[in-house]
Each structure stands twice: as C-alpha cells, then as structure tokens.
Design a protein around this nucleic acid. Structure first.
Lengths: 201, 201
DNA sequence: TCTTTACGGTACTGGCCGTACCTTAGTTGT
DNA sequence: ACAACTAAGGTACGGCCAGTACCGTAAAGA
C-alpha cells in the first residue's frame, strides 16, 4: 500500500520489520487492539501476513511489540515539596491512562489472560518499576522532614497510584477528574505517609 | 442434547430461558468467557442459536447474564475488633477473585470495553456497593474508639480492598498470599484509619 | 378448531487467525 | 559473473465463530 521507492525495490530484514511495526502501531492507535488484524497490518505495511508470522508468533505478540513503541516515560517531577511531586506524578499517570494507550494496555492485559509472561516487562508491570519513582520522591520528602521514614515501603509508597489505577479499573475509559486526584492525595496519601499514628493504648 | 422429558415435549418461554442460562453458566465456569460460544451453549441447552438471540442481543449480554448467576454475597463479618473484620473482608474478596469467577469477571469487564453500561449493577461496581460494608465495619470501629471518625469517607474506607484488587489487576490469576493481606492491613490500612496525623507545623 | 407465537433445524455470510505452498527478488559466497 | 541460498510476495486455504435468514412445526390461546 505504501512501498517507499515504488518499483522494483523489495524490502528485507530490518527495513521490513520496521514497516510492519509502524503499521501495527498505527492500527493500534486508530482501532485499538480489537481492530488490530493481521490482514490489515499486512496491507498497511505493503506486505503480507507471511512476513509478520515469520517475526511474531501470533497477534498478541505483535500487539505487545507495537505497544512497547507507545510506552513513554516522563521525567520525574521535583517541585521541592512532597504534595506537588505527588500531584504531578498522579496527573501524569492520569493523562497517560486516559489516552488511547491506557485502553490498549487494558486490552492487552486482558488478552494475555492474566498470565502476562509476555507483557512482563512492559513497564508499569513488575512492581519495582512502579514503586521506584515513588520511593525516590518519598526519599526526598523524608530528607526534608515531610514524611516519616516508615513510609519508605513499596506497599505504602505506591498507595496513591494504586488508588488512581483503581479508578480506571472500576469505572471505564475517561480520565479521572482532578478532584479525585486531590482527594486521594489529601485524604489518604499525605495523612498516611506524614506521621504514623502510634498504636492505641 | 439433554431435553428433560425426551420425546414430544418442546420447551418454551421461561423453561427454555432457564435451560439456556444454565448451559451458559456451565460453559462459563468450565471454559471461561473466551470459551463461551453461542453454538456450544445452544448445543448444551439442547436448542439452537435462534432461541438465544431472541433473548440476548449478543454474546457479551449472554455472558453477563450468566455471570450474574455466579455472583454471591457473603455475610458481613463482625469479630468485635476492627483488625479481625478487615482481615476477614479481605480474605473473602481474595477467595472470590482468585476463584474462576474473578477471571470471568475480568474478561467480561475487558470485553465490555470499559464502557460498562451493561455490567453496571453487577455488584462490586457502582462504588457504593463496594464502600458500604467498609463503612459499616468502620462505623462500629469508630464507636469502639478503634478508628478516627475522619476515616468514615468512602475513599479512605475502601483503601484496603482497592489495594488488594490491585494485586489482581497487576499480577494475574492466582490468589494473593495471605502475607500480602496482612501487610496491607498492618502497614497501610490500620495506620491510616486509626488516628490521622496533624498537619505538620 | 383455528390462529398466533415461538421453538427447532439448517444453511449461510462474513470476518479473522493461522498455515501451506509456490514463485520471485535480493544477498552472499566463490 | 554466476550459482546457491535466503527471505519476500502472492494466493489460497482450513477452521472457528458471531450473527442472520428461512422455513417447517409444535405449543398456547381464543
């Protein structure tokens, strides 16, 4: 459909792989994972399904490979104050998950049937990758005396982002309103990490 | 395949609907939503796809109707102590979500594409239904002086169950280990609801 | 008994995944 | 320069499944 230098040239190897992947990414963003069909990708890349199946074993693998192209990493905020950092991290995630990428990610997770050996290292997976930025900004907050050292625990540190993710899991597609984010921060997260209450009597 | 009184009897109306739904439930528990095909349900109910499509517009609707049959409600725990109640509620949810039902629910949620008008009132949806039991056991805890009145806020009250749900969303199928539940309770939930820290200087 | 309703049977379209097989062009080694 | 190999292109399937169409026929109601 769109061979570059039309005529005799026949693409091979990396060039063709690149074209396929680019076509898959386009299909994914336009039609989502449900609309990602092997025939359409092949047509769009100006090739046929053979070339795809020689590189990826099935549709899911292609979908995941294409998704990896979309995953972006934003720089870690550093506003000098814990509340600002937390709000910014949450708003980044909110934007990201409410974009088409978030929908695609959910579909891929569903398609891989929970047993996400394939998705495994797609960022946001593996827990560590999720926890890392939170531990960093919390570490800075502890140094400033804004947070208690006991908060430097993955389960505690990631509470805010987990609550936000829940909004997407339970309600569907659209972005969480900013009030929700503020509420998570002020009603839950900051009270939790600031100073832990002593055991009662 | 299994008409009850074989021979001349032809089922109609409610009886047939019941048989279809029962067949769909069986298929759903045996093969999950992915394995729920209209042909198999029809065969299993001893009828054909027409009878199904006269009642439900598509596969998803049938799947949801069948799922509703599986959703069970457990009685609210009342151990006389907040920690015990919380642990019990979480363990109930853990059992439920790690059973086949949890997998099916996730598939249905994914298939309805976030816009879950259909799933809407399948329990565990609509927020209120989720928050209600937590507000009740927290209310008792507040009366006993075990928790702070500020904790009687849906966002705060449901933190524990949301964190547990996250375990299922991020990691896949299997049950969360009991240590995770205990950690959620002791590291996050109880510190959060007991006594809120005052704003720092 | 006669009419209406809805079930049963069957066949079909259309979409899509994944595979097979063969032809042809580009690449590599000699 | 030529041969041998590798990988792309073309095309045609098989199989599965959702959803639709049509028709004969049993049950329910008047």
């Amino acid at each position: 459909m769109e061979r570059p230098g039309a005529g005799g040239t026949r693409r091979r190897g990396a060039a063709l792989e690149e074209a396929i992947l680019r076509a898959a990414v386009d299909e994914l963003t336009e039609s989502g994972y449900a609309g990602l069909t092997m025939d359409k990708v092949a047509a769009r890349a100006g090739t046929n399904k053979n070339a795809i199946y020689r590189r990826w074993p099935n549709r899911l693998a292609l979908g995941i490979a294409a998704y990896r192209r979309l995953a972006t990493t934003a720089p870690l905020p550093d506003t000098g104050e814990l509340r600002g950092d937390v709000l910014e991290l949450l708003r980044q995630a909110n934007r990201n998950w409410s974009s088409p990428y978030g929908v695609i990610l959910r579909d891929l997770l569903a398609a891989s049937g929970g047993a996400s050996e394939l998705l495994a290292q797609t960022q946001e997976q593996s827990g560590d990758a999720t926890a890392a930025p939170w531990l960093i900004i919390l570490g800075r907050a502890v140094a400033r005396g804004e947070a208690s050292p006991e908060a430097l625990h993955p389960r505690v540190a990631t509470v805010a982002i987990v609550l936000l993710r829940n909004e997407f899991v339970v309600r569907g597609v659209p972005a969480a309103p900013d009030e929700v984010i503020v509420e998570i921060v002020d009603e839950v997260y900051l009270p939790l990490v600031r100073r832990r209450a002593p055991l009662p009597s």
